[in-house]
């Protein structure tokens, strides 16, 4: 599935991610956790191609590093960025359809539209509404839905639950589980460590641009030192 090997990423001359190795297996949910400024978003951007990166970034054996960002959906990466970044003045439906921009199979797109509406029935009700008129939680659903519209092999989620109500958060993580059940691998960055651990198979801990620890959910949440330092629980 996804294999990162020695990945470094920089903004201009300032390198903020240094030689990261990371792996996501088929059907796996992997969390990438760490303090603010650790470089989580930057690493995800390296996978999406929107920051300059070195090293090897492979999806199902295909090298993506060095390819332009707009090829990523065709490789099978669905990216749901930090801060949602929806097209605010367009309707929910148009946002979802734009998520399928790199696809040519019209029938498949309609199918996936139904699949997204199945995951988030709320979006069907709001389909004709401009995104800027939605609540934060609804916008987050639209952002995840948009990423799913490329029919990705790997779904990358950057802090999907930030600033939304607990009830919608539960809905969202239910949807993440369902997406995983449909056979999509997931790489998740999340501030709510408890919620992230609950859905993850494995966890990476990132600090100052490097991977500090890696392990299964059970191994990491059993370690008392790590629990106190990272999870505050």
């Amino acid at each position: 599935m996804l294999d990162l090997h020695g990945v470094s990423a920089a903004y201009g001359k300032a390198e903020v991610v240094h030689g990261v190795d990371l792996h996501v297996g088929p059907g796996e949910v992997v969390s990438l956790l760490g303090p603010n400024g650790a470089g989580k978003t930057t690493l995800l951007k390296a996978i999406a191609g929107t920051v300059t990166a070195r090293g090897s970034i492979r999806l199902d054996g295909q090298e993506m590093c060095g390819q332009p960002a707009h090829f990523r959906p065709r490789f099978g990466v669905g990216h749901c960025p930090e801060g949602r970044r929806l097209f605010a003045e367009l309707s929910v439906l148009n946002n979802l359809r734009l998520g399928a921009f790199s696809r040519r199979d019209a029938a498949g797109v309609e199918e996936d539209l139904e699949r997204v509406f199945g995951l988030f029935p709320r979006l069907r009700e709001r389909a004709g509404q401009r995104v800027s008129t939605l609540s934060g939680g609804e916008q987050q659903m639209a952002a995840v839905g948009r990423a799913m519209m490329s029919r990705p092999k790997l779904l990358v989620l950057d802090e999907p639950s930030v600033g939304i109500a607990q009830r919608l958060k539960n809905l969202l993580f239910q949807a993440v589980r369902e997406i995983c059940r449909q056979g999509v691998s997931i790489l998740l960055v999340e501030q709510d460590v408890r919620a992230a651990l609950a859905v993850s198979d494995r966890v990476y801990l990132m600090e100052s641009g490097r991977i500090a620890r890696e392990g299964t959910r059970e191994a990491l949440s059993a370690d008392d030192g790590i629990r106190r330092a990272y999870f505050g629980m």
């Binding site: 191609g49 929107t50 097209f87 605010a88 921009f101």
Partner: peptide
Amino acid sequence: LAISQDPEAAEYVG
């Protein structure tokens, strides 16, 4: 329209 509203998000959708 998408690029005029958010060029980076436009890259993410391809």
